[in-house]
């Protein structure tokens, strides 16, 4: 079975800047709940952009479920979903209208869109607001809509960039619970966040990136045991230091 993500020798720099990623190697197995962490400016967002094909690369290789992303066929896009940190939907449209539109763009037909919309509205408790304009929702409801759109087409790999930022405890629990359910059904989760307690609950394997390099990559249990830490926050500070970052 192909790895969800297979990165080898990947280097990347923005125009006329120092390299953000330098000869990076990383493998994320299918079915994992993988957490990617690092201080601000470490290269997390850039790496997410490269893994989702949003950024082009010249050096190295990035494969998603065995498909090379450089010069990729757009059909590969149906294999993954992205939950961006920013709300990426149309605030003028209702929940249902947003799901219908993004469902069509994900390649679903009318019947599939209808079924999946009903399912997601129910699972993410959005039924009462299915016809309301999303722009007027609370932060928690917007986060759920953001997530629902990303999973409309049942992607095999789901990238999550700060999926619970700014939400209350109840919504966070509900989202994490739903993500675990998805994973049980075979969806690989690739998660990045500054919410380290949440990561301890969700992730089975963790990597830390700093100055463009992966500095650790192991299961959460092994890492805490090896570094004699009782939580990710202590491990994070031990490995990346206490100085301010960009």
């Amino acid at each position: 079975m192909d790895a969800a993500i297979q990165i080898s020798g990947l280097s990347f720099r923005y125009q006329a800047q120092e390299p953000v990623l330098d000869q990076l190697d990383l493998t994320i197995e299918a079915g994992e709940r993988f957490g990617l962490f690092g201080p601000n400016g470490a290269g997390k967002t850039t790496l997410m952009g490269l893994m989702t094909g949003l950024l082009p690369y010249k050096t190295g290789s990035v494969k998603l479920l065995g498909y090379e992303l450089r010069g990729r066929d757009r059909k590969i896009n149906s294999l993954f979903g992205l939950v961006p940190q920013d709300f990426s939907f149309y605030p003028e449209l209702s929940t249902e209208e947003n799901l219908q539109f993004f469902g069509a763009w994900a390649g679903l037909n009318k019947k599939e869109i209808k079924e999946k919309t009903n399912e997601l509205l129910s699972v993410l408790s959005l039924e009462k607001v299915r016809t309301k304009a999303v722009g007027k929702f609370s932060g928690g409801m917007k986060r759920r809509v953001n997530l629902a759109i990303a999973v409309m087409h049942e992607p095999r790999v789901l990238f999550l960039d700060e999926p619970t930022v700014g939400v209350d405890v109840q919504t966070r629990h509900a989202i994490i619970h739903y993500l675990k359910q998805l994973n049980q059904h075979g969806t690989t989760l690739i998660y990045t966040s500054h919410q380290l307690h949440e990561a301890e609950d969700l992730c089975t394997r963790v990597a830390m990136i700093d100055e463009g390099k992966i500095i650790i990559n192991d299961t959460l249990t092994n890492l805490l045991h090896q570094h004699k830490q009782d939580g990710l926050e202590g491990l994070f500070l031990e490995l990346t230091g206490r100085a301010y970052r960009s």
């Binding site: 896009n77 961006p84 920013d86 763009w105 390649g107």
Partner: peptide, 20 residues
């Protein structure tokens, strides 16, 4: 508005060509 709201970014990660 669509560029700044991130809607375009999400569209780029979907299998439909942006030209649509």
């Amino acid at each position: 508005r669509e560029k700044r709201s991130g809607s375009f970014l999400r569209l780029r990660t979907l299998p439909t060509h942006f030209g649509v």
